[in-house]
């Protein structure tokens, strides 16, 4: 308890940065859940593919774990290319997962359980595929941004990396929210989320909307992937699993199917996890996250904001 009070602001900053990454991944769960009412269990692997996409892009530009990026403009250039690569890798993976693992089942109106099993199958195949291809050890990310303390927030030091992660998450989340509320395509997504059959009667191409949903979720996961690479500096085949479970927790915590809920849930989970592990010891960090999920589901299964995508106001 003493530790928590002494390091409260430090823990808050760490919690918010980690929470931002959870939030971006949570958006993918929430989007798919809002539209199809199913947990895209394979989303964690969509994220994992994104981290490798970013890594390959950085390596492709001649960086390795030892190289130094000194000028700010070069760093920004590298980051933009890597982010695009990560988003493309994740987005394409998500769309392929939908095509291969979900669409044939939707055609047969299979029960939800079956969707979950194919999702588990896709998830296993992807992570093991990467394990076979890249080996089972950590692969280091090049250091593109060297964390430097920018200012003090109470007594906690805030680095340029913390600021970048937090702002990127907020910006990506709000662009997605605006896209959903303002554009024609976004309206299509909301229509299908509300009532798929009526939407189809009104001329919405359901399959295209569903592909779009997976694509958007994948892009958000790609954003999370590059931020994760910058923050933690390593990736491997099973990097998505734990993060996926936590991001799902975040989505439920905020109210699944609700975009703003995913952001709030992600940040809240990041904070709870850090405060919790400060109290009971950091080896219990993951247990804290799981227990939070169970408690939230027991007392408020609809989450903090508890609104579905379809009902979200235009």
């Amino acid at each position: 308890m003493d530790f928590l009070l002494k390091n409260f602001w430090e823990l808050t900053v760490t919690g918010l940065t980690q929470g931002s990454i959870y939030a971006l991944v949570a958006l993918g769960y929430t989007l798919v859940y809002g539209v199809l009412r199913l947990i895209n269990f394979a989303h964690s692997e969509v994220f994992m593919v994104g981290t490798f996409g970013a890594l390959f892009a950085l390596e492709g530009m001649g960086l390795n774990a030892n190289s130094d990026v000194t000028s700010a403009s070069a760093a920004i250039g590298y980051l933009i290319v890597a982010a695009l690569a990560a988003a493309a890798a994740s987005g394409v993976t998500a769309v392929i997962v939908e095509r291969v693992a979900y669409r044939p089942l939707r055609r047969r109106n299979a029960p939800t359980l079956v969707f979950l099993i194919t999702a588990i199958g896709a998830s296993l195949a992807m992570s093991e595929g990467f394990a076979i291809w890249r080996g089972r050890d950590n692969e280091a990310f090049p250091t593109v941004i060297d964390p430097k303390t920018q200012f003090k927030f109470f007594d906690a030091s805030v680095s340029n990396l913390d600021i970048l992660i937090f702002l990127t998450a907020i910006v990506m989340m709000f662009s997605l929210d605006t896209f959903m509320r303002r554009t024609r395509l976004g309206r299509g997504v909301r229509a299908v989320a509300q009532d798929p059959d009526s939407a189809a009667l009104m001329g919405v191409n359901k399959n295209r909307v569903i592909s779009l949903t997976f694509l958007l979720g994948g892009i958000m996961a790609g954003g999370a992937a590059i931020l994760y690479g910058l923050r933690f500096g390593v990736t491997k085949y099973d990097v998505g699993f734990l993060l996926g479970v936590k991001a799902f927790t975040a989505a439920v915590l905020g109210g699944i199917g609700n975009l703003r809920g995913a952001l709030i849930g992600g940040l809240a989970l990041g904070l709870v996890e850090n405060y919790g592990s400060a109290i009971v010891g950091s080896q219990w960090r993951d247990v804290v996250a799981y227990v939070t999920l169970v408690v939230v589901l027991m007392f408020r299964p609809t989450g903090i904001l508890g609104e579905s995508l379809g009902k979200a106001r235009a």
Partner: peptide
Amino acid sequence: FVFGLALIIVM
């Protein structure tokens, strides 16, 4: 890996 693929195909 093969299980994963088999699960999808079987399902």
